[in-house]
Design a protein around this nucleic acid. Sequence first.
RNA 1: GCCCGGGUGGUGUAGCGGCCUAUCAUUGAGCCCUGUCGAGGCUCGGACUCGGGUUCAAAUCCCGACCUGGGCGCCA
Length: 464
Amino acid sequence: MVILIRVPERDKHVSATAFFINIKNRAKIENMKLPIENRKYSNEITADDDGEHVSIAGWVHEKRDLGGVFFLIVRDREGFAQVTLHKKTIGKELFERAKKVPRESVVAIEGIVKSEQKAPNGYELIPEQMEVLSEASHVLPLDITGKVGAELDTRLDARFMDVRTERTKHIFIIRSRVLKTIRDFLDARGFIEINTPKIVSAATEGGTALFPITYFEREAFLNQSPQLYKQMLIASGFDSVFEIAPIFRAEEHDTTKHLNEASSVDVEVAFVSDKEVMKLLEALIASVYSKVALYPGLSKLNLQLEVPKVPFRRITYGEAIELILEAGEQIEWGEDLSTSAEHILGKTIGELYFITDWPRAIKPFYAQPTEGKDTCDAFDLMHPRLELASGSQRVHSYELLKENIESKGLSAKSFEFYLNAFRYGMPPHAGWGLGVERLLMSMLEIDNVREVVLFPRDRRRLVP
RNA sequence: GCCCGGGUGGUGUAGCGGCCUAUCAUUGAGCCCUGUCGAGGCUCGGACUCGGGUUCAAAUCCCGACCUGGGCGCCA
């Protein structure tokens, strides 16, 4: 097995994708006639390579038959390469075979690079050999050239094909880069990445509905969040931990911003207060925006990304209620914010902001009560369109936590595994959970959360 | 869960009681064309979600089921 690792040499030819991914890993494929282990990506070839012998491989994106000359547009991860066949100078067998390859078939082509001003990238490939590695069926489930649109439902049914489109491909490359940026950011600040169980026993922090599953002879549930576990690891002495993992909510909601399986970035930090983790959160968001703003593939999303300035605006829950009332919407102190209330605030404020000092009653038992008030040291990070994250200073006193759990009508006994961690040395700590999909959809101005998940799970969809 | 929409070739649509043997685009098959880049031109193929009802007549109206888009609720 041969593995080649290359780094693109010339910055100007580095593609949208290679902007981030500059290491390649190619293995030789057995049973192939063409030596494609040395294949080049379409963007690695330029007019300067005139006369060079190269191999490319990819999908047949389009075919343009002009009679005496035939163009085959081959698409790979990095872009498109034009393969040009002149009837008179190319072998008849190859010419006929190229014309017959169905669109979206996977081909490997070996040939000579020709500098050509009339060609899209300034070069074209004059083929000597072509191998069809996988012939595609004739009628495609979607048009991926962008001539005819497709509804989201149709696209999700054929998601593997939908990801071949430029827009969708770049959404998921951006998603990958966002997750890497988050990891790099937290890693640089001394965080330890943890993995906590997704199959849990009944005890839950409340609020949302859980998915029951069969765990051998017992009933178990899919975890709604890593909250309890990440706090327990604070007692372990890791000081700063994070997890990026799926969370499961069995709510039968049917909206453009809810999923039954979502991804969450969860952070927990010891020896700090809610104020510090808010600063961490806004710095992280700004860092993600600035990284994505530099991504060349952003142009495929028709988006001008503005990096938000830190610090974000902070308003208290009480101030939020006043703003909502001023706008003529009914709300009482103590109520959670409705969708329309969130929209009113979003419209009024018009940028990312925090809502702080929430009433104790509408925040979970682990949020630290503010001394002498009926509020707690909890915050939500809001985008004008929707909530992105929520967090708080945590209760670290065993007694208070136990009391809080019971006052919410939950059984302290079923939380014993969690409460125990507070009995033998638990530092003060604070943290938050951030919805990955919501960050992506709000940042990229995408209306439906399903667009930013490869294979979304919602009320109705379990396949693919 | 509630309230509004919608289900027509592979895809996206027009038609909304008889002019429907169903429109247009794209895709597919085939033909013409030597510089395309959403190539162009010509020929052909391909659809009314399912079940019940109303009517002389249903893609079109009514009822139900299923699927689906949006708003709200729940929730993050």
